[in-house]
Structures are given as structure tokens and as C-alpha cells.
């Protein structure tokens, strides 16, 4: 329970600061705390993104009907 409360307090601080600087952030601390440890730049290595890029490029070629 303590861990969750600390996270919520931190999120409330983020919300306050974002208001001060007129930046958009999720305004419900209970929701916000579940979105913070998701950073695709940190969690996914470039090698995997490279696979995604390759597939998207092939899909686009196939969609256009080019070989």
C-alpha cells in the first residue's frame, strides 16, 4: 500500500508542475502512475524496432501493389 501511495504523491507533484508550465499530462494520479514506467525508448531495443520498421515498409509496398 505504501508503495502505491508514494507513487500517487509523486504523480500529484507531476500534475501540479505540469499545470504550472501549462503542459498536458494525465490528470488522475491513480491512472498516471500506471503510465510512467512505459517508455518505448528504454524498454524496446533498437534491434526490435528495426524488425518493426522492415515489416511496415514491406506492408506498404504490398499495399501499393508493387513487388
Amino acid at each position: 500500500m505504501k508503495k502505491h501511495n508514494i507513487m500517487e504523491e509523486l504523480c500529484e507533484e507531476y500534475i501540479e508542475k505540469s499545470d504550472e508550465h501549462e503542459i498536458n499530462i494525465e490528470k488522475d494520479s491513480k491512472v498516471l502512475k500506471n503510465t510512467l514506467d512505459m517508455d518505448i525508448r528504454e524498454n524496446i531495443p533498437p534491434q526490435l524496432i528495426s524488425i518493426v520498421a522492415g515489416v511496415v515498409n514491406i506492408i506498404e509496398i504490398l499495399e501499393k501493389g508493387e513487388e
Binding site: 505540469s18 508550465h21 498536458n24 514506467d37 512505459m38 518505448i40 524496432i49 520498421a53 511496415v56
Partner: peptide
């Protein structure tokens, strides 16, 4: 954008908004 590289693809994912709150929190 066509013929995307790794960074371009990452930017597509970021542009969908999935990274928004964590990036804002890091800036704060």
C-alpha cells in the same frame, strides 16, 4: 512517411501517444 528507418518507426509509435506521460514526467 515512406521507407521508414528505426528512428522513423520509433517516432510513429511516439506520435500515437503511448509514450506521452512518461516523457513528460522525465522532463519535469
Amino acid at each position: 512517411k515512406k521507407n521508414k528507418g528505426v528512428r522513423d518507426t520509433l517516432e510513429v509509435l511516439r506520435a500515437t501517444g503511448v509514450n506521452h506521460d512518461s516523457e513528460i514526467a522525465q522532463k519535469i
